[in-house]
């Protein structure tokens, strides 16, 4: 029982990370049809700079952690908005080229991160409480899992609220459904593109800081390794569906934890098999719209 609870909560924590990456990917894809390979780099740069700032403030305190998260989200948002503005926008509606540019950016930035911060992991110091455990139903659960889950839920609620109650949110929701018609109503949908990139980048940057708490370190590849799972999550959840991304994040992460524990560390393979199964049964994903299998 305690193992079950531990796996479940740890899975939820990992799912929270996946969601922070996948939410942006899914929104960006849904609105713009862009598969963003550079999304992992937004996460990495957010994590690195977030921790740099935090380290200079006061290492290991709660204040420093909050600062790291805020800076991480801000840096992620800026990096993403700049990417949209300077690279993606120039290739408006040329989806393949847009993907290619993000691929180039991902390769270049990871190399740059290695140049700046080195190839070895940089270990981070977070408040002591996060490294301790709390006992729930006999399971000793690392406290950082609770932080991850709480913040992912907060991000989900914030994004949903933004989409539901603001004009930009309205434009984005409409644009995900039918971008052409939004334009035909006299709305410059490109501004919404920048907003979506910024939101996705902020979530990823925050995710970067949290991922480094989860793993205990930052590295130049932390973003790209999470990105692949985020891709799988978005396909399973249904491209462009935020709710789908949330559900699939949890399912994938929990499945991964269970397979790792009970099936001899085969978590990654189990996830790919799950992806194959979803494709066979339901190519458009759990909550994907009809006709959006492409």
């Amino acid at each position: 029982m305690s193992t079950l609870v531990l796996l479940l909560v740890t899975g939820l924590g990992l799912g929270a990370l996946y969601f922070l990456v996948a939410s942006g990917l899914s929104l960006i894809y849904g609105l713009m049809g862009v598969l963003n390979f550079a999304h992992g780099s937004f996460l990495t740069v957010g994590a690195f700079i977030g921790w740099e700032v935090s380290r200079r403030l006061s290492d290991g305190s709660w204040w420093a952690l909050v600062a790291a998260m805020l800076v991480g989200a801000l840096v992620g948002a800026l990096a993403a908005a700049a990417t949209e503005f300077f690279l993606i926008r120039r290739l408006y509606n040329r989806h393949i080229e847009q993907v290619l540019v993000t691929v180039g950016l991902a390769l270049a930035t990871v190399a740059l991160f290695e140049g700046i911060w080195g190839t070895d992991p940089t270990y981070v110091t977070s408040p002591a409480w996060l490294a301790q455990t709390t006992e729930i139903l006999g399971a000793r659960i690392p406290n950082n899992r609770f932080l991850l889950i709480a913040l992912a839920v907060l991000v989900l609620v914030t994004i949903v609220g933004f989409l539901r109650f603001t004009r930009y949110g309205l434009i984005i929701r409409a644009g995900v459904e039918n971008r052409t018609m939004v334009t035909a109503l006299g709305i410059d949908v490109r501004r919404a593109f920048t907003v979506v990139f910024a939101i996705g980048g902020a979530a990823a940057g925050l995710g970067g800081v949290l991922a480094s708490i989860y793993y205990g370190y930052v590295s130049a590849h932390i973003g790209s390794s999470l990105l692949i799972f985020a891709f799988i999550v978005t396909v399973i959840g249904g491209l462009g569906s935020l709710g789908g991304a949330a559900i699939a994040s949890v399912l994938v992460a929990v499945l991964q934890q269970f397979a790792n524990f009970y099936l001899g560390g085969t978590g990654d393979l189990a996830v790919v098999l799950a992806l194959a199964a979803v494709l066979l049964v339901r190519p458009r994903g759990l909550l994907g719209a009809k006709g959006s299998t492409a």
Partner: peptide, 18 residues
């Protein structure tokens, strides 16, 4: 027609207001 199926009637109209 191309209405936004997942938006409410009001939202469809609000979106169109210039």
């Amino acid at each position: 027609r191309e209405v936004f199926a997942k938006l409410t009637v009001t939202e469809n109209l609000r979106l169109a207001e210039r």
